[in-house]
Amino acid sequence: MTVKPDWLRVKAPGRERIGNVKDILRDLSLNTVCEEASCPNIGECFNAGTATFLIMGPACTRACPYCDIDFEKKPKPLDPTEPARLAEAVRRMNLNHVVITSVNRDDLFDGGASQFVACIDAVHSVSPNTTIEVLIPDLCGNWNALELILQAAPEVLNHNTETVPRLYRRVRPQGNYDRTLELLQRTRQLSPSTYTKSGIMVGLGETDAEIRQVMQDLRTVDCDILTIGQYLQPSQKHLQVNEFINPEQFVAWKTFGEEIGFLQIVSSALTRSSYHAEQVRELMERYPRS
């Protein structure tokens, strides 16, 4: 059994701020990926008054063996009140930046794109100065659905690469590495003003050379922002951790990423897709796009 090192031990979160965020989420019947996916940063983010909203869930149509989101329940029909409830949460939490993600909804003809659009429009209506990041599934390669989401004008479109191509069959069996790259490339072509983002988990058996190749591939499709974080096993039924990566390696990847042209790299053991996502507002000021 791989023993968790000291640098992965997270301080217990304070109750007051977390309780306030949870009260809002429960009152509005909203899901967050922070809770559903057992994110280790939930204390830090909730204490900062931020959350990554999980729409169209919590049941997922895929069964990725690394993920803690439920795939055994049958997905429910889309809730037309969800966008308004999400926008109200953004208003109550006074968010400058919001991240909206979803489960995979391969049962829907557009992969849930219409619900993303409704949520983006609702937030724009209630809080026009809030910047929006959407972390989307691959939509089964439905590029018309991708275009619909981009037409709603989120500032950031995030789609996670997750792992290296060699491990896709084991880690992300219903995903496709080339389709992931194509989604990011098409986003850049369809909406040049949108910042593109992706994320990688490490510690699943990949090599340093493979990670660097993925980083190069992402830059080839002009991806702007990258997150790199340590995979943690949610339970005994999920994929085991192959290795806990040393903090110095995360620094080395960050340095390499900056050298090859990423506008922003967040790389550390506890980094997750939406960790410090609000920093994109600073990036937008440094690298504005019309």
Rank of each mutant, 00 (worst) to 15 (best):
His97Leu: 07
Arg105Ala: 06
Val164Thr: 10
Thr131Gly: 08
Val103His: 02
Asn96Cys: 09
Pro173Trp: 08
Asp121Lys: 14
Thr161Asn: 09
Asn158Trp: 13
Cys119Gly: 07
Glu133Ala: 06
Leu167Gln: 00
Asn142Leu: 05
Ser102Ala: 14
Val171Asn: 06
Thr130Glu: 01
Phe109Arg: 10
Arg169Asp: 15
Pro154Val: 00
Ala113Lys: 01
Glu133Leu: 08
Ala113Asn: 05
Arg170Ile: 14
Asp121Pro: 09
Ile132Pro: 05
His124Trp: 04
Glu147Asn: 11
Val156Glu: 05
Ile120Asn: 05
Ala113Leu: 04
Pro173Leu: 12
Leu139Thr: 09
Thr101Val: 07
Arg170Phe: 14
Leu157Asp: 09
Ser127Glu: 06
Asp138Thr: 12
Ala153Leu: 13
Gln115Tyr: 06
Asn129Gln: 12
His97Phe: 14
Tyr168His: 02
Asn96Gly: 14
Leu150Ser: 05
Asn104Trp: 08
Gln151Arg: 15
Ile132Met: 02
Arg105Gln: 03
Leu139Tyr: 09
Asp107Glu: 05
Leu150Gln: 11
Asp110Ser: 03
Ser125Asn: 11
Gln115Thr: 12
Pro173Tyr: 10
Phe116Ile: 08
Tyr168Ser: 00
Ser102Ile: 07
Thr161Phe: 11
Val99Gln: 06
Ile132Leu: 01
Thr163Pro: 07
Arg105His: 06
Val126Lys: 04
Arg172Ser: 12
Asp107Met: 03
Arg172Gln: 09
Cys140Tyr: 13
Pro173Cys: 11
Thr130Arg: 00
Val134Lys: 00
Glu162Cys: 10
Leu157Glu: 04
His159Ala: 05
Glu133His: 03
Gln151Ser: 15
Val134His: 01
Val126His: 00
Arg166Gly: 00
His97Gly: 05
Phe116Asp: 08
Leu167Asn: 00
Leu139Gly: 05
Gln115Cys: 11
Asn96Tyr: 11
Val99Phe: 11
Pro137Asp: 02
Trp143Gln: 14
Gly141Ala: 07
Pro173Lys: 04
His159Trp: 01
Ala153Glu: 15
Gly112Val: 04
Arg172Ala: 10
Asn144Glu: 13
Ala113Thr: 03
Asn176Tyr: 13
Pro137Trp: 01
Arg172Glu: 03
Val103Asp: 02
Asp121Leu: 12
Asn158Ile: 13
Leu139His: 11
Glu147Gln: 13
Val171Phe: 05
Pro128Leu: 03
Ala145Gly: 02
Ile100Lys: 01
Arg169Val: 15
